[in-house]
């Protein structure tokens, strides 16, 4: 059973950041059966980390583990897209490209 490692990059304690944190916690609790770890990184305090990860938009969620690496942009309010993006749910046939 693989462990999830999720890094959420936010820029400051804005309502949008708060939304993203809340949405992420909720999605994890309800959908991930495995162990998971969430790291929240405020790029205003750690700009170099944004530079290293080459992040442009906030909020950005990076799934470091399990592979493959995924980047999700936005406040994670569209749950279905988040679940697909994190490979928790398969890509629905209708939006397959």
């Amino acid at each position: 059973m693989s462990k999830f490692l999720l890094k959420l990059y936010i820029s400051g304690k804005t309502p949008r950041s708060e939304n993203a944190i809340r949405n992420l916690r909720q999605i994890c609790e309800e959908n991930i059966n495995e162990q998971y770890e969430i790291a929240i990184i405020d790029i205003l305090e750690h700009p170099q980390s944004a530079e290293d990860e080459r992040i442009l938009a906030t909020p950005t969620l990076i799934k470091s583990l399990p592979p493959p690496l995924r980047r999700l942009i936005g406040d994670l309010s569209e749950t279905e897209k988040v679940l697909v993006g994190l490979d928790i749910r398969p890509v629905p046939a209708t939006i397959k490209e």
Partner: peptide
């Protein structure tokens, strides 16, 4: 990249 909601270029 997957867009999952509102965002800005704050990191940039």
């Amino acid at each position: 990249m997957v867009i999952t909601g509102n965002y800005d270029l704050g990191a940039f």
